[in-house]
Amino acid sequence: MTSLLMLWEISLLLCMIAAGALCVLVLARVLGERKDRKQEDLRAELLPALLGDDFPAQRLTGTRLDVAATLTSELAEMTRGTEREALLSRADAMGVPELLVRRLHSRSAQTRLVSVETLSLFDDQINETCRALDDRNADVRLGAALALAQRPDAPSPETLVEKLRMGSEEHSLLLVSLMSDLVDRDPGSVAALLFERNIPVEAKIAATDALAQGGGEYAPLLAYMARESFGEPDLQPRIYRALGRNGHPAGADAIAAGLDSPEWTVRAAAAEAAGRIGAAEVSDKLGRMLADEAWWVRLRAGEALLRLGPRGIAALREAAEAADQTVRSTALAMLAEGRAT
């Protein structure tokens, strides 16, 4: 009986606690709304000072500085070039960078992330921004790295690989964006990652993807990697797609080899790449792939043949008369889809 009564009493107590918490939150909302209104007024007051030339920028403190820092973060995202430079100069005069540095110690990962992204835009804050690469939160570390990668004085790719713990803790697709930014600045040091033994595979994949956008000079390297990654079904398709994006004919031999892969994911990626680089010499092979058991391979082979122009379309037309039902229907559908009937 005691336990039954206790259950009742505990349930009542819990209800009262929840109701009390809700009341506190409602009160906090009322007070918060007043604060929000005050901040809205301050935003309206500070906006011209951050954006306009007519308002002398002066050192701010307290809530005014808080609002100025938040506004700077928002406006920096919307501005570019000289407009952004002028904004940052005024924010600097107001004392915004110092507040952002203090915010890097906030308990909120959200606050730290926004702060480091904004802080990275100030030329004299590179050291503080780099410290965020050691943040306890992976999103903040990645945000800091992405922000730093856009600067001419960004840390080396190897440093970023190590700080972000790529491969062990960091697996994001955004690593490709990071590497792409680094390639713009120093493609050689990104390419060097591919030859380092201790660099994790994920970092190398990201570097490969990024290098694909770096021009034809990396096509032989990508082709070499495509061949060397045989037997790695997760890695090889990405390299073939990178070869396709790279678009250089130097990748043709490697792509032709990929068309014979036992993995359908590799065959599909290689077929796609063949179309993208215009490898007309493999059009017969692509025609035969219209009989592949994997739908994705048939689709990519058909798309590639359409991309190859007259030679590819001729191969499709020939396949449209094949005895094999799968080949015939695939070719007919692709021709109709490409309006090449």
Binding site: L4, L5, L7, W8, I10, S11, L12, L14, C15, I17, A18, A19, A21, L22
Partner: peptide
């Protein structure tokens, strides 16, 4: 009362929480 606790008051607590 125990039945009311599991069907009413604890339900109210969970919703408000």
């Amino acid at each position: 009362l125990a039945f009311l606790a599991v069907t009413f008051t604890l339900g109210i607590f969970l919703s408000v929480a």
